[in-house]
Design a protein around this nucleic acid. Sequence first.
DNA 1: CATAGCCGTGACAACGTTGTCAATTTGTCT
DNA 2: AGACAAATTGACAACGTTGTCACGGCTATG
Lengths: 342, 342
Amino acid sequence: MTKAPPRRAKIQDVAEAAGVAIKTVSRVLNNEPNVREETRQRVLAIVKKLNYHPSLSARSLAGRRSFLIGLIYENPSANYIVDVQHGAMARCREDRFQLLMHQVTGRGEEMERDVLGLVDQTHLDGLIVTAPLSESVDLMRALDRRALPFVRVAPNDVPHPTPYVDMDDAGAAREMTEYLIGLGHRRIGFIVGHPDHFASGQRLVGYKAALAAHGIEFRDRYVRQGYFVFESGMEAAKELLIQPDPPTAIFASNDDMAAGVLMAAHELGLTVPERLSVAGFDDTYIAKTVWPRLTTVHQPTYDLAYTATNLLLQMLQTGTAPQSMRLGYRLVCRASTAVVHK
Amino acid sequence: MTKAPPRRAKIQDVAEAAGVAIKTVSRVLNNEPNVREETRQRVLAIVKKLNYHPSLSARSLAGRRSFLIGLIYENPSANYIVDVQHGAMARCREDRFQLLMHQVTGRGEEMERDVLGLVDQTHLDGLIVTAPLSESVDLMRALDRRALPFVRVAPNDVPHPTPYVDMDDAGAAREMTEYLIGLGHRRIGFIVGHPDHFASGQRLVGYKAALAAHGIEFRDRYVRQGYFVFESGMEAAKELLIQPDPPTAIFASNDDMAAGVLMAAHELGLTVPERLSVAGFDDTYIAKTVWPRLTTVHQPTYDLAYTATNLLLQMLQTGTAPQSMRLGYRLVCRASTAVVHK
DNA sequence: CATAGCCGTGACAACGTTGTCAATTTGTCT
DNA sequence: AGACAAATTGACAACGTTGTCACGGCTATG
């Protein structure tokens, strides 16, 4: 009563049914030139009829490429990485590539070993490297040694011929700071992002630039180190707020930390935005779910990843490195910021 | 000046260096019996020295398996799916399998086509199916037709020999409801989860059971349909709260909706937990970042996925279907619930 | 002391594609 | 019509593994 195991059609079956050589079928499937239109149609019809799908393994083996692209990340917030994943996935699907996610463990040499293990074992065609992994010169050198094409989806100051996609972190941070200044704030706290991320420094630069442009003195005591996670934002905010002459606004370098600031404010009994304005960065899901809703910088995370993947696929197809790209941001003003309280 | 392209070592290279046949190297690498210990060591030494890694494609082609496992999901909250991903990934790594994530688009027939497209194109060895995809009888039949082993990581009432991993949704919901009753609440609102999810019904069952056990009449007007997303929780809560004799507690079927309830409460000027207690379900990241922090049911998402993947790998290796499993939950009482206000 | 069986090993044929190159057909230009 | 170029097609050898089967040496058995 068990049904016969449904043997998979192979290229040979298609070729026979269409009365052509397997090579011709291969040509049709890969959109190679020099196939008569009539033949092409006949083959395609059979392919459909037999529900034929080429074997990825055989293709990889013969064609010397795996159609696999890796996406490596370290320890980002879930909301952020999911956007990245979906952006990269969407672009991969268009070209029938598959995406292999890989969360990297460890740092420094251990991280490097982890990544190289992935690369060596899976024979990836290319790699998408997110921050802060994209800032490791050692990793980039190791990838070069493997002759593995990769793109970076992150701001960056490491010189390398490989393209990257980023946004103007400094500009965005400056604009947000100026927005707060425009609301009358003069004592503006700033929570720096994780020190491993180049973007963290850039956002700080933007914050300082805005203060300078408006003749506001920069003070160390209004700045605290954070680590891009909720708890670090909460603790930094408490430190900022319990000092005399505390800030009337706090700008956190990402939304998770900004949510931590809100939590600190609630615990200290400071109403937001009446007594304290709070701004975030990234515009992830969390920004819309906390109360009050966060004013933040919208970062085009999905597009960043989509574009990076696009560049990578171009590299693979043309063999040359395309131009890096910079995508736009925009301020999203919600309910966590208001005119300074007198 | 360009360094020679670092040609990848192949099994032949290893065999020659070790003075054995390629088949022997293959045996060593696959832990097959009948290799003298001395030979094994010699081969392993060479493998390490040459940094040899077998080609996945060649292995797949010859061995008729791809070492690829698919993980399909529909549209879950980011925090949830990331936990699932990492659980499955962790288990895959142990056996050198690779995980292919796939977000399914569409419903019904379109969903089915999408999944089958993935399966056909990639020649997966197995599939991890999350809710609510795991409840589609059609999909399961289609997978059977492809003779593709799969596991379900979700509660389920579809009879099928394939194993699944779940938790006691009804029991957990009942316990949470009883906890609220224990705090003195009698008018307890309930927001049902997405109707496509079997778990939604189970959680409702638990809620009703708790009411019944404590002689509290069940009333339709305290129940609203939600869709597992923030906005739906917010809207449902508003409807529940603007009626006369409104609930003093609201139990939402997941954390995202519970966060929506908090937002609604804030907008209506109801302080939580003084005037309204709120409980969620899942214990995802969001539960710790909203204010006040959510009382919720901890669902072992990571372990659920890890265990499911484990079962799948067992199936692949032994060829027989292992027992399904049920994992434990626990109530996490935080700041969003309190004794009923008089 | 032969004999059957197991252990360790290797030769060689798959696996299902793509790349190369040669053969055949078609089209274009005198 | 004949010659040459271009388009179309096919035969066959890779690609780097695993599966199958055969072979020789060794050990336990009768």
